[in-house]
């Protein structure tokens, strides 16, 4: 029994309830336009933007079918890089916030011209921790882990690996120069997230990019 002037209340909502609600609205909105949304995450310098550039270079369709949202604390540099490839891109500058949120994405989507677009990439703020729990309304999570970061990153950042549908080990052309145990890295990713697809890419010579497009295509059907 509560004391006269106090009351216990059970709530049981997720702390991310509000973000999840906005993300669910975005998902519906994308679905209604038949746009497949992809949330690309990874550390700063893991090669996310370069991976996007390489995906654009290898795209078989009309570039007007693609759109990109770029998340960074500061500067429009990444959106400029994507626009330089002929794909429409909008920059989200988060200021001091270390991850994108569903509302930031919802707001930025209004600035894109989406008729004709069938695939939307959202490059999250470079960070292997914070973006993992903030749903954006996308359909697929890709996590980039690069060879120079070291093979221990997946096991050190398991929460991020858990959110991945596809883990891309990037910069594999640098394997001869780093003490990176590919087999152990793959094994540890599999332990943390047995359902994740693991791919290897080297954007400089487009290794693995077609396979990545194929995996994206299979998921978007």
């Amino acid at each position: 029994m509560d004391k006269d002037n106090s009351k216990a209340v059970e709530d049981m909502r997720s702390l991310l309830h509000k973000n999840d609600e906005v993300a669910a609205q975005t998902r519906k909105w994308l679905d209604s336009r038949q746009i497949f949304g992809i949330n690309l995450m990874g550390s700063p310098g893991s090669g996310k933007t370069t991976l996007l550039e390489s995906l654009i270079d290898c795209y078989q369709g009309d570039l007007a079918e693609l759109a990109v949202l770029e998340g960074d604390l500061e500067t429009n540099r990444d959106a400029d890089r994507i626009a330089g490839k002929g794909v429409q891109a909008e920059q989200i500058c988060t200021g001091s916030v270390c991850h994108l949120s569903a509302s930031m994405v919802a707001e930025a989507l209004e600035k894109l011209s989406l008729p004709g677009v069938n695939t939307l990439f959202i490059e999250n703020v470079g960070n292997l921790v914070c973006p993992s729990k903030f749903a954006l309304g996308t359909h697929l999570n890709i996590v980039a882990v690069s060879v120079p970061e070291g093979d221990d990153k997946p096991i050190k950042y398991p929460v991020m690996i858990r959110t991945a549908d596809i883990v891309v080990i990037t910069k594999t052309d640098l394997l001869p120069y780093f003490n990176f145990n590919l087999e152990r890295c793959r094994r540890e990713i599999q332990e943390i997230n047995p359902q994740a697809i693991i791919l290897e890419t080297a954007a400089t010579n487009a290794t693995g990019i077609e396979e990545l497009w194929r995996c994206i295509g299979e998921r978007s059907c």
């Binding site: 209340v9 049981m12 909502r13 997720s14 702390l15 096991i155 332990e191």
Partner: peptide, 29 residues
């Protein structure tokens, strides 16, 4: 961090707890 059944090794398991943050209870004045 091995997301498989410790008993039979199955990986198609359901994670029922431990990945969320939940506001469970409040004591109000």
């Amino acid at each position: 961090f091995s997301f498989r059944c410790p008993k039979c090794g199955e990986t198609t398991i359901r994670v029922s707890d431990g990945e969320d943050m939940i506001l469970q209870r409040l004591e109000l004045e």
